[in-house]
């Protein structure tokens, strides 16, 4: 069997690699978004070091 440049195998590999790449980018975006939400919530807010409490 000859593996030409246009072989169906390459298409399937490409789709798998593309899917994995997009999934990883999506995961990074999710972790970033989650981090932003978590640090923005009130319970996460801490007084700055050295700041006098009122």
């Amino acid at each position: 069997m000859s593996l030409s440049r246009e072989h169906e195998l390459h298409k399937r590999r490409f789709s798998r690699n593309m899917g994995l790449g997009l999934a990883l980018i999506g995961l990074v975006a999710i972790v970033f978004g989650l981090t932003v939400v978590k640090v923005s919530t009130e319970e996460f807010t801490e007084p700055l070091f050295g700041e006098a409490s009122e």
Binding site: M1, E8, L9, K11, R12, R13, S15, R16, M18, G19, L20
Partner: peptide
Amino acid sequence: THTTTLPSDGGFSDFF
């Protein structure tokens, strides 16, 4: 050589 699909080279849709 006689099959149209090759093991361990599934596309994204197969994993999905």
